[in-house]
Lab assay of single mutants.
Amino acid sequence: TTYKLIANGKTLKGETTTEAVDAETAERVFKEYAKKNGVDGEWTYDDATKTFTVTE
């Protein structure tokens, strides 16, 4: 399944996707990606669109 991340960070803005077996796995991947890019904010997830959003 393809999951999408929308990053609304102070230093990183944009979108990326990952293939994962479930939302929990995708969330781990995206949180690691955000951490590597210095983004720390509020996370939301929309199951209907398989989209995570992080906003600083």
Rank of each mutant, 00 (worst) to 15 (best):
K36W: 07
K4A: 04
T25Q: 13
V54T: 02
G38N: 09
Y45F: 07
K4T: 14
E42R: 11
T16P: 04
V21W: 13
K35F: 10
E15R: 07
D22V: 02
V54N: 01
D22N: 13
F30P: 00
A23D: 05
E27G: 08
A48D: 11
Y3E: 02
K13Q: 12
E42Y: 13
A26L: 01
D40F: 14
T51A: 03
T51D: 01
D46P: 00
K35N: 09
W43D: 00
V54P: 01
T25V: 08
T51C: 06
N37W: 15
K10M: 11
T53H: 08
V54F: 12
V21P: 15
T11I: 12
T1N: 13
G9D: 04
D22T: 05
G38S: 06
V54S: 01
E32W: 06
N37V: 12
L12M: 13
F52D: 00
T49S: 10
G14A: 13
E56N: 06
T53S: 06
G38M: 06
G41Y: 03
T44N: 08
E15H: 10
F52M: 01
G41F: 03
F30K: 00
Y33Q: 03
T44G: 06
T17W: 14
A48S: 12
E19F: 15
E42V: 15
E56R: 04
T17C: 11
F52T: 01
Y3K: 02
T17P: 02
N8Q: 11
G38K: 07
E32S: 07
K50I: 01
F30G: 00
A23L: 10
G9S: 13
Y3A: 02
A20R: 02
D46R: 03
T18W: 08
F52P: 00
V29D: 05
E42T: 14
E27P: 00
Y33E: 03
E42H: 12
V39M: 12
K4M: 09
Y3F: 11
E24W: 10
D47A: 14
T11C: 15
T17F: 14
K4L: 08
K13W: 13
A20E: 04
T18I: 15
A34Q: 02
K10W: 08
K35C: 11
T53R: 07
T11R: 10
F52S: 00
E15W: 14
E42D: 11
D40H: 14
T1Q: 12
A34S: 04
Y3C: 02
T51R: 03
E56P: 07
A26E: 00
D22E: 04
I6V: 11
T17R: 08
G9W: 06
N37C: 14
K36P: 01
T44E: 10
A7H: 13
N37G: 05
E19L: 14
K13I: 11
L12H: 14
T17K: 08
T25F: 06
L5I: 03
E24C: 13
K10F: 11
F30E: 00
E27H: 10
F30I: 01
E27D: 04
T17A: 07
A26S: 02
A26K: 00
K13N: 10
F52V: 01
G14F: 15
W43Q: 01
G9H: 08
T18A: 07
E32K: 06
A20K: 02
D46M: 04
K50V: 03
E32A: 12
T11H: 14
A7M: 15
T49C: 04
K4I: 13
D22L: 04
T51E: 04
V29G: 03
E19K: 12
Y45L: 01
D46F: 04
D22G: 04
K4E: 03
G41I: 03
E19P: 04
D40Y: 14
T25R: 05
G38Y: 05
T49I: 06
E32H: 07
N37T: 05
T49F: 05
K35T: 10
R28W: 07
V21S: 11
T55R: 06
K50F: 08
W43I: 03
D47T: 08
I6M: 06
G9L: 14
G14I: 15
T18C: 15
T18N: 03
D46V: 05
K50N: 07
T51V: 06
V39K: 02
V21G: 09
T2L: 14
A23M: 13
K36S: 12
K35R: 13
N8H: 13
E24I: 12
T51L: 03
T1L: 10
A23W: 15
R28S: 08
T44W: 08
V21F: 13
A20W: 02
A34V: 10
V54H: 02
T51W: 01
L5M: 08
T2Q: 10
T44Q: 09
A34T: 06
N8T: 11
E19H: 13
N8S: 10
F52G: 00
E19A: 07
V39F: 14
T49K: 06
G38P: 01
